[in-house]
Nucleic acid binder design. Sequence first.
DNA 1: TATAGCTGTAATTAAAAAGATTACAACAAG
DNA 2: CTTGTTGTAATCTTTTTAATTACAGCTATA
Lengths: 144, 144
Amino acid sequence: MKITSRFTVAVHTLLVIYIFGKECKTTSDFIAASVQVNPVVIRRTLLSLKAAGMIDVKAGSGGASIIKDLKDITLYDVYKAVDAVENSNGGIFHFHENPNPHCPVGRNIHSVLDSHLADAQTAMENELKKITLYQLVAELNENL
Amino acid sequence: MKITSRFTVAVHTLLVIYIFGKECKTTSDFIAASVQVNPVVIRRTLLSLKAAGMIDVKAGSGGASIIKDLKDITLYDVYKAVDAVENSNGGIFHFHENPNPHCPVGRNIHSVLDSHLADAQTAMENELKKITLYQLVAELNENL
DNA sequence: TATAGCTGTAATTAAAAAGATTACAACAAG
DNA sequence: CTTGTTGTAATCTTTTTAATTACAGCTATA
């Protein structure tokens, strides 16, 4: 089980909008062609990014544009925007669901493990906070 | 998608073996009753832990016992033992599979993102290295 | 040495999760 | 008013994961 590809798709999407936004109309179809997923997947991604205040999407006429400084968008922001890990659901670790409450270990396994797993997840997320899209664009340009 | 429950099951399993190992014969059925999963799941877990040199399993007569100092077993060791994240498969992040090689963004998205995602995963794993099973047992005893 | 209780392991089934796809109403611009 | 696009629901399909069934082989013990 993994962190949903919505995350990498969203990063890819933002980069395409940024790189091509001036020359082309970056529609869901256009972006979908670069990411190679169904355009509906991109539309849903665009909705999330819009809700997070990162982009503007023109209904009807089409096309998306970035409305936030790339220096102020970290990978973590994107990760959160697309809800890459439903935290309603306990995070990135899949816990076995029904430990036996009549067993002293089963009864306490959650209270013993949960905080450590949460710490591990937080460490990962903090790493994502260190990288901005501005950096990614710079790295991308090196490779062009 | 998440990190497989094999991991939390394995931690649970080790704790049960440690706590009950002196009074009971900790068979796969016994452990399965605490974890509340199918005994076969426990047997597979035991095989992984045995291969990692953490436990000894008696074929035939039954029962498992810990053969490594709990201070020398970290959560990371267990995580690795059960192959919680197949690293053949690129780690905990699910990357969209077919970025378009004819697009400059699609062609380079991997080279730009991969190392940052790997760093994030490593940060998470390093956090798991900080916690030993010895600590968990101590925390468990506080709750008994 | 017969047997009872386990482990080791393959094969299959079932369930859950995630993404892909289809479909279509609403909208904006020419 | 037509064309191209977004917003969004509904429905497959695929993939992944765990559960289950089944049984051969081992080991202690009677």
